[in-house]
Computed example of a mutant assay.
Amino acid sequence: MLTETSFRDTVVEMIRRAETTLPRDVLSALRRALNREREPLARFHLKMMLENLSLARKLQAPICQDTGTFTFFVKLGLKRGLRFDLGKAMTEAVKIATREVPLRANAVDPLTRRPSPSNTGRDQPAVHIEITPGKDLELELLVKGAGTENCSRLFMMRPTAGVAAIEEVVLKAIEEAGGKSCPPNIVGVGIGGSMETATLRAKQALLRPLNVKNPDPELAKLEHRLESSANKLNIGPMGLGGKTTVLGVRIEKAACHTASLPVAVAFQCWPARRSKAKLVNGKLRVVEP
Results as ranks from 00 to 15, higher is better:
Phe72Ala: 05
Arg122His: 11
Pro217Gly: 13
Val265Lys: 01
Arg24Val: 14
Lys283Met: 11
Val163Pro: 04
Ser228Ala: 13
Glu37Gln: 14
Gly121Ser: 08
Lys221Ala: 15
Pro237Leu: 05
Thr258Gln: 04
Leu139Lys: 03
Val212Cys: 01
Arg250Gly: 01
Arg32Ile: 03
Arg274Trp: 07
Lys95Glu: 11
Arg31Tyr: 09
Pro23Gln: 06
Pro133Lys: 08
Ala97Tyr: 00
Thr197Tyr: 05
Glu51Asn: 10
Ala61Thr: 15
Arg114Glu: 03
Gly77Gln: 11
Val212Tyr: 00
Arg201Asp: 14
Gln65Asn: 14
His257Ser: 08
Glu288Lys: 12
Glu176Lys: 13
Val263Arg: 00
Gly147Cys: 07
Leu200Gly: 01
Val246Gly: 01
Ala97Glu: 00
Leu78Lys: 14
Lys253His: 02
Pro217Asp: 14
Gly190Asn: 01
Thr67Val: 10
Arg250Lys: 15
Gly282Glu: 04
Ala89Glu: 09
Ala230Gln: 02
Val143Trp: 04
Val101Thr: 12
Thr98Trp: 03
Lys180Asp: 12
Leu142Trp: 01
Arg24Ala: 15
Arg273Gly: 04
Ser194Lys: 09
Pro102Ser: 11
Pro289Leu: 06
Thr245Cys: 09
Thr98Val: 02
Asn234Tyr: 12
Arg43Gly: 11
Val169Tyr: 06
Ile131Val: 12
Ala107Lys: 01
Pro125Thr: 07
Gly236Trp: 06
Phe72Ser: 01
Arg8His: 10
Gly179Asn: 08
Leu30Tyr: 07
Leu154Ser: 02
Ala161Val: 13
Ile15Asn: 14
Leu46Ser: 07
Arg273Thr: 08
Leu261Phe: 10
Leu279Phe: 10
Thr21Pro: 08
Glu19Arg: 11
Gln60Pro: 00
His128Tyr: 10
Ala259Pro: 00
Asn185Asp: 14
Ser152Thr: 00
Arg250Thr: 07
Glu19Val: 13
Ala254Cys: 02
Gly179Ala: 10
Arg274Pro: 02
Ala89Phe: 07
Ala202Leu: 09
Ala146Pro: 02
Gly192Pro: 00
Pro271His: 05
Asn214Cys: 15
Ala177Leu: 07
Leu222Pro: 02
Leu139Ser: 05
Lys276His: 15
Asn185Met: 14
Ser116Lys: 00
Glu288Val: 09
Pro262Arg: 10
Thr71Gly: 07
Leu111Pro: 00
Lys172Gln: 12
Arg208Thr: 13
Leu279Ser: 05
Leu41Thr: 15
Ile96Asn: 02
Ser152Glu: 00
Arg24Tyr: 11
Asp123Thr: 07
Glu13Val: 13
Gly190His: 03
Asn35His: 07
Thr160Glu: 15
Ser181Ile: 05
Pro183Ala: 06
Phe7Thr: 03
Val265Ala: 08
Met157Asn: 04
Pro183Asp: 04
Gly242Trp: 09
Pro110Gln: 01
Val101Arg: 06
Asp123His: 12
Val26Trp: 04
Glu92Cys: 05
Arg99Val: 05
Leu200Asp: 12
Ala266Cys: 09
Thr71Asn: 07
Leu206Gly: 00
